[in-house]
Simulated scan of single mutants.
Amino acid sequence: MPRQRNRPAPSDGRAGTAGPDTATLAFVESPVQLLNVLEWAHTAQAGALTVVVLSPHDPMTRGQLRRMAELARDEGHVVRWEEARGGPTAPVRTIGGLTPLLRKAGRIVIGDPFSRYVQLLLTLTRARDLVVVDDGTATMEFISQLARGERLVRWHRHGSGRGPRDLVFAPFSAVARRRLTPVAEGGTRTVGLFSSMPVEPPPGVHVTANEFAWTRARFGPPRLTRAADIVGTSLVETGVVDTERYLEAVRALARTHGATRYFAHRRESTDKLHRLHNETGLEVVRPDLPLELIARRGPIGRLILSFPSTVVHTLPLALLGTEVKVAVCDIDPAWLTDHASPRAQGFLDGVTGTARDVQRLPSTSRMATG
């Protein structure tokens, strides 16, 4: 059964000459985004900023966001919690309340450039400095689409993206994409990216490496256990991977590597996790913070097993200097559902292939059937 666990800077994330009267406003919708805002502020030696949480419906995400908000306040930042999706009038109320802040902000930090909410808010700001902080593997797709001048569409989304809602929102999305595109050298708008992911940005986008320095300074080092731990993924919930195939793969990983715990992704369904616990005997853990912080606090296994996801890039950085090893299990093409995006396999292969300091496991098809 699942249980619970327990200064302003320039837009490229580098310390610089931004004046003390330059207001920095950050928008986040997930715990990982808020973690990376804290990492950016630490790396940039930024002063206090205002973090706006555009709260989602999902209770697990909300719970982790509450805990991350506490950490942000401990660091001296102002956190403004917005029930941005709390009913039909919530968007109008939220946008109306945020408009004065958007007008005054000299710098905007965002965690999800694909968010329609964030794209709409970007059309209301006069800020000349924009910073995109990591939203995990989605950052890789964002930079790739920005470089090609394409519409911003999430990699796992199936279809043309030209439905009625897409068409209504298209003008706002186009404006946001232009705001996120750097102007020619000598212009007045700058765009920065703060990321731990391997990216090749378009000309004019300044990249600063996210090395999880704040996480390492704030937590750990962790106590290590003898057993391995498995990191869960929401690939089933997003319609990319077949449920039965996924459960078979988790069972094979646990058997092969002696894993005893399964750290659930915040979006994994309760029904799937109940099945996973009953069929594998793994202890299912619902983390109350992003896994980078959970692992750094410990206790954590000496071996962490994951499928292609953000953590294969971030955990080696967060756990730098420890004896923890991270291993990644590829997604076999046979596991993909009929609803998976045509881009899914290539994107997942890229996530694994570009990961540094991780162990590559044997063929997942052999593991799942062996």
Rank of each mutant, 00 (worst) to 15 (best):
M1N: 12
Q4V: 01
G13D: 08
L25S: 06
L25K: 06
F27L: 15
P31K: 03
V32S: 11
Q33Y: 04
V37D: 07
E39I: 03
E39H: 01
W40L: 15
Q45D: 12
Q45H: 12
L49G: 09
T50P: 06
V53Q: 06
L54D: 02
M60F: 00
L65I: 08
R66D: 14
R67L: 09
E70F: 03
L71G: 00
A72H: 05
A72L: 12
R73W: 00
D74H: 03
E75W: 04
W81Q: 06
E82M: 15
A84D: 09
G86R: 15
G87N: 04
T89M: 09
V92E: 13
L101F: 14
R107L: 11
P113K: 11
R116V: 07
L121V: 06
L130C: 07
L130S: 12
V131N: 14
V133Q: 05
F142L: 09
S144M: 09
A147R: 15
R148G: 11
R148W: 09
R151E: 15
L152E: 08
H156N: 14
H158G: 03
S160W: 10
R165E: 11
D166W: 03
A170G: 03
A170W: 08
S173A: 15
A174Q: 11
A176Y: 10
R177Q: 13
R178V: 08
L180Y: 10
T181E: 11
T181W: 09
P182S: 03
P182K: 07
V183Q: 11
G187Q: 04
R189H: 09
T190P: 00
S195L: 06
S195M: 10
P201V: 13
G204F: 10
A209R: 15
T215L: 02
R218K: 10
F219E: 12
F219A: 07
P222M: 05
R223E: 14
L224G: 02
T225M: 10
T225L: 11
V231C: 11
V241A: 05
T243R: 15
V250S: 03
A254R: 09
R255D: 13
T256F: 01
T256E: 15
A259R: 07
A259F: 09
A259W: 07
R261T: 14
R261V: 07
A264F: 00
R266F: 00
T270I: 02
T270H: 10
T270K: 02
H277D: 12
N278T: 14
E279G: 01
E283Y: 00
V284G: 00
P287F: 00
P290D: 05
P290F: 05
L291G: 01
E292F: 08
E292P: 05
A295R: 03
A295E: 02
R296T: 05
G298N: 01
I300Y: 00
L303D: 03
T310N: 11
V311R: 01
H313V: 08
T314A: 10
P316R: 02
G321L: 02
E323C: 00
E323I: 00
K325R: 15
V328K: 04
L336E: 11
H339P: 00
R343F: 10
Q345M: 13
F347K: 04
L348F: 06
G350P: 08
T352M: 12
G353H: 03
A355F: 04
A355G: 06
A355M: 05
D357A: 13
R360V: 02
T364F: 10
S365W: 11
A368T: 13
G370M: 09
